[in-house]
Design a protein around this nucleic acid. Structure first.
Lengths: 115, 115
DNA sequence: CAATCATTTCCATAAAAATGGAAACATGGA
DNA sequence: TCCATGTTTCCATTTTTATGGAAATGATTG
């Protein structure tokens, strides 16, 4: 992952409404939720939500799929995984890491050996 | 971790210069680096770096310590760990998670049971 | 091909963040 | 104390982002 992609993803998550939406979609699982339902749950006007969804979409953190006249948005779990891996990446050389970060780094290393 | 803290941390990381600085400090380990060395390595004017360091400091992602006439900055590993845990938090119910995220979630769960 | 409902685009406005030169503020050494 | 060096504050400017009403677009049903 290049730094620009990471910045884009972090920027997308670095806003209360968007972080709330993203976490909602993570919790909702692969089916996701349609825009109206998200707006109602989070409590923002449709236009505002649309703006934020576009940001998340553009950052690759969510995915959209049309279903009837609804548009369903769902979290892109792979993107979240990549971002987490990127954050933990050049860590743990000095043994300065804590549990979760170390867990990620261990997984990343295991993968690198396998690949 | 409350959402405002997460947003603050993400916002601090969501900028190319700051993300570069943070990763540099993560790689540098607990000793960290002094401001001038960081500025030289990253290639930004002192005033600009100072601005960005303050952002990272304010977000709790780095820590400062005076050493002679230098000020050393180092990564706050616990903060990074918390942020990663927060991102992976309400995940993995539907089994939709991927390796790194799952590793974090597993560690979080293990801790919760222990605690 | 209406009528209807979901969602997005348009747009103006308001708010927040990034940049870097110059000056101020430490700190340590002569 | 005076000087050199490291770092920060001040400040004006530019750029980016957030907000939400109103109108436009897209999709489905009768």
């Amino acid at each position: 992952m290049e730094i620009q992609s990471a910045v884009k993803a972090l920027l997308a998550l670095a806003q209360e409404t968007r972080l709330t939406v993203f976490r909602l979609l993570v919790a909702a699982g692969p089916e996701g939720m349609n825009a109206g339902a998200i707006a109602a749950t989070v409590g923002v006007p449709a236009a505002t939500l649309s703006f934020h969804l576009k940001e998340l979409l553009h950052a690759g953190l969510v995915v959209a799929r049309q279903d009837g006249r609804y548009i369903f948005y769902s979290a892109n779990f792979a993107a979240m995984d990549d971002l987490i891996a990127y954050l933990a990446d050049n860590c743990c050389q000095g043994g300065s890491c804590l549990p979760k970060t170390a867990a990620v780094a261990a997984t990343t290393k295991r993968r690198r050996q396998t690949a």
